[in-house]
Amino acid sequence: YAPIDFGALRFCEARVWSFFNKVNSEMGKYVSYAQGKSTDPMPLYIKPDRKLSAHDIQEMMRDHYEGTELDWRFDVGAGPFNSPYRWSPLTFEVDSVEYCNERPIATQQTGFSFVAQMRSWLPDPVGGILWFGVDDAAQTVYYPFYCGHTEVPHEMAPGNGDLLNFSWTSAFWIHNWVSNMVYSRYSDMSLDMKKVQSRLEEQFMTAQPAVEQQVLALYEKSQPEAVHFLTRYTNSLVNEGVAEWKKLGEYLMVKYIDGVIKKEENGQFKRNEYGRPAFPSRPGYSNEYYRKIVEQTGDKYKVQPIEN
């Protein structure tokens, strides 16, 4: 039993609507339901306009309502770098009037998420995959954990850090470390993050057919060996992926330290003729954000002529 109120619509149903809206061209007419302005229900389920892959679903998990009426990257709350995040709580009051933040599919509070891929025509230990990732779904890497998996990788094992103890070998902590840098300069850093994310996940998807063909041949000879092979395979991906994510964090720290942007050339940070770091860019903020500052502060920061 879940009575429909504003919170149920805006904080829960809107997420479902956004999923549907990405893959069905008729869902736009239900946006008022997602906004909590109407209780006329949207369909309980829909047929996508096209066949969806596991990777399509992964990308949908990363949604922040971009390109819809609920897109919140361009109001004052988004800050100077168009953040699709707001810190909790979900609601707040101004002059005794209650307002809300959005609760998109991808949020900073996510501990883990997964996409289930089920293929009945394959042996159970091979046919089922949980594409599993830790932290914010928009900034995670989805790793293929097969149904026959028998050993938790060290990077995700209990005891390797916890909520009060940071660990440089913990997938949770490395991803949170990177995410919390990206949040501070989202429009810039998210582009760098997505390059690494896409590269890793494309590698996993590309390798999948050949790996599974090898496993199926092994499965006919020895099921335990096939399961062991897949377990070691996935754990190696996690190990390598977390190492790459740590390198990403180091890269972001160097590139954006103290609000500047280091210049790059051919995939390397640029140096001057003396071998020193090239003078960085100082892009400041967008014209739109500067205008908001002036509108709010008037002449407080206006450069005034000095009369002698």
Rank of each mutant, 00 (worst) to 15 (best):
C100A: 13
Y274E: 10
K292G: 02
W177S: 10
Y301C: 07
Q214L: 10
E307S: 09
L52A: 04
L191Q: 09
E151W: 14
P153M: 03
V303A: 10
W87D: 09
R73A: 03
G249M: 06
F6V: 01
S281I: 11
I105V: 13
P277F: 14
W173T: 01
L9Q: 14
A14M: 06
N308Y: 14
L70Y: 01
H64Y: 06
E69A: 15
Q304K: 15
Y45T: 06
N101K: 05
K51Q: 10
V152Y: 12
E288V: 08
G127C: 13
S32V: 00
E295H: 14
P277N: 12
Y186Q: 02
S187C: 11
S198G: 00
F11P: 00
C12L: 14
F81G: 02
G128V: 05
P280T: 03
S170E: 04
A2T: 14
I261F: 02
Y274F: 14
Y99M: 07
H175T: 05
V115Y: 02
Y45P: 00
V141L: 08
D71R: 03
F6C: 00
I105H: 01
P3L: 13
H149R: 09
D258W: 09
P104L: 04
Y142T: 00
S222A: 10
M189H: 06
H175D: 04
V227E: 07
E264R: 15
A106Y: 03
W177M: 12
Q117M: 09
S120A: 15
V31Y: 06
N272H: 03
G67C: 10
L248W: 06
A14L: 07
A34E: 04
G259K: 04
Y289E: 07
V254T: 11
Y186N: 04
N266T: 07
N82H: 11
E59F: 08
K255R: 13
S190F: 08
Q223I: 15
F269T: 01
D56K: 08
A137G: 07
C12S: 12
M60L: 14
H64A: 02
S187G: 08
M156R: 13
S198M: 07
R291F: 13
F145P: 00
K263C: 09
L191P: 00
R103K: 12
P84C: 09
V31S: 04
K270T: 01
G241W: 02
S53D: 07
F204M: 11
F166V: 05
S32I: 00
V260C: 11
E225F: 04
G259A: 06
E244G: 01
G128M: 10
D95I: 00
L218W: 03
R15W: 03
A210N: 09
V178R: 01
P224G: 10
A243W: 12
N21Y: 12
A157V: 11
D162V: 10
K302S: 05
K262P: 01
A78P: 03
A278D: 05
Y1S: 08
E155M: 10
F11L: 12
V16D: 01
E220P: 00
V134F: 08
D258A: 15
R15V: 02
V16E: 03
N24G: 06
K263G: 01
H55A: 14
R119W: 07
E202S: 14
L216H: 01
G79A: 11
E102M: 12
F19S: 02
G67N: 08
F172L: 13
D40W: 06
K247P: 00
Q197P: 09
R86L: 05
Y289G: 04
M61Q: 10
A34I: 05
N266Y: 13
K270I: 00
Y251F: 14
